[in-house]
């Protein structure tokens, strides 16, 4: 027996041992090794493989409970209705009214800055202003980008 045949025989033995007797369970690129007439050296291994296949076939197929789909969607997905309520209110406001708070805050900041500069107060305050916390009430806030009524509801 030449070296190629020995290797093929050994590989066939490994396939029976790992994947069973049914070549449908073997790696696709190795199914060509299957033969109806089992080589004599492998008869016992093939027979054992076939018996284990039969034992495994006795086991029932688990059936998933049907109600999981809705339960899982409810559990996992964010509620679109609550987001829609918030966004619908937000979107119903005219665009100018939506921008009013931001514009007002910016104007207020500008006014404060001008006053500080004119009064000469900023020269003393600036180091402590830089070191202190930012007052978020004076920072212009845009509506968050991730609030999107149209795509969040899955309609």
């Amino acid at each position: 027996m030449n070296q190629s045949n020995k290797k093929a025989l050994e590989r066939l033995r490994q396939l029976y041992a790992a994947y069973g007797a049914d070549p449908g369970h073997w790696p696709k690129h190795e199914r060509w090794l299957y033969r109806e007439d089992v080589p004599p050296e492998l008869i016992e291994g093939e027979s054992d493989a076939r018996m284990v296949d039969r034992l495994l076939a006795v086991l029932p197929v688990p059936v998933a409970p049907a109600q999981n789909l809705r339960q899982l969607i409810t559990r996992a997905a964010p509620s679109p209705r609550r987001d829609a309520t918030v966004h619908a209110h937000h979107r119903s406001m005219p665009k100018l009214m939506q921008e009013w708070p931001a514009a007002l805050a910016l104007a207020a900041s500008l006014a404060v800055g001008v006053w500080l500069g004119a009064a000469g107060v900023a020269d003393d305050l600036l180091p402590s202003l830089l070191a202190g916390p930012v007052d978020i009430d004076t920072v212009a806030l845009d509506p968050p980008d991730n609030l999107d009524f149209d795509s969040g509801g899955g309609t």
Partner: peptide
């Protein structure tokens, strides 16, 4: 002779290099 059983020119399968996905 296994060569006769399997036909000539045995392209020995290489289990170390299987395709990307089956």
């Amino acid at each position: 002779d296994l060569a006769l059983l399997w036909g000539a020119a045995l392209p020995l399968a290489e289990p170390e290099t299987p395709p990307k996905t089956e």
